[in-house]
Design a binder for these strands. Structure first.
Lengths: 163, 163
DNA sequence: GTCTATGCAAATAGTTTGCACTTTT
DNA sequence: AAAAGTGCAAACTATTTGCATAGAC
């Protein structure tokens, strides 16, 4: 699905609900779909200030994010730090996240077996499963190497190797 | 593991770190382990005000929760609403959560296969897995029935069946 | 007696809201 | 012209922090 198609979907969404197609909404929408990263509301607001285009206030950023989430154009994921991160949905297959606790790097993954078992588990408890949020926390390859090096290097000197 | 044993564990934890065994900490600790529900910091603070015992301030509630989480006596789970919920850990095997989006009911579950696959997935990405958070969202049996009843009852009127 | 914990209230971070004005439809 | 959207700043919610005093060790 390309940018144009996605944009149409957004426009339909707005029309269906009697909402207006403002430059701010379009700009936010485009920016969100131009990113393949996870971002926070504050980050998105930062882009709006720094990058050229119509002015967009913080309030509008938040309001539009809410709108996009409602329309399932955006999905939110909890960092657990009181800040929500978002990522766009269309053109993205459902996936879950693997988070490095050392550097914050986020990898996406999808596992059919887990998805299937989740549905079974829900059913076994009598629940109708609608969606889920799964995050695995650990240490990424790069940081694992760093840790190993630190453990070796730091072993003989008393000063920490950290920075 | 009973209350006395758990309390000892907490006391050891404090001693090891040179922390003091205050009435506030004991009261909070006891209260946390007396609950088998998930609770928020604000809720816990509410209990401290309402129930008899030494006075505990909001700040101390937050500070102690932080301490308990650090010592892995408490585990936090994100509601995604900017509020963290907690639950005590000792005497609880690790588990994940199934949340009813209609009534807020939370069920716990544990699935060995999912746990195993999660480790595999992390490994396949080169990550060392340390812990995870998984929540399944859906509709519980009671609310599913309610929805079905509502759908039938509302079927002949022009109003939508909602959803 | 020392060093940490507590309580308070002010500070912070992220997000939401009321209101006057602007824009889309 | 009507209805909705925007920007601004103040309000709110959850949580953290500085500081003087109280309490555990």
């Amino acid at each position: 699905m390309n940018q144009a198609k996605i944009q149409e979907a957004f426009e339909s969404f707005l029309r269906e609900r009697g909402l207006k197609l403002t430059p701010q909404r379009m700009r936010i929408f485009e920016r969100v779909f131009a990113t393949h990263e996870h971002f926070s509301a504050e980050q998105l607001f930062g882009w709006m200030r720094e990058e050229p285009g119509d002015k967009v206030s913080r309030a509008t950023v938040y309001r539009t994010i809410g709108l996009l989430a409602e329309g399932r154009f955006l999905e939110s994921l909890d960092t657990g730090n009181g800040e929500l991160l978002y990522e766009h949905v269309l053109g993205h297959r459902h996936h879950d996240h693997l988070v490095c606790e050392d550097c914050g790097r986020i990898e996406e993954f999808y596992d059919e077996d887990i998805e299937r078992i989740q549905t079974q588990v829900a059913k076994s408890k009598g629940f109708v499963l609608r969606h889920h949020s799964m995050r695995l926390f650990g240490t990424c390859p790069t940081c694992t190497k760093k840790r190993e090096r630190a453990a070796k290097g730091g072993a003989k000197s008393s000063a920490g190797a950290g920075g």
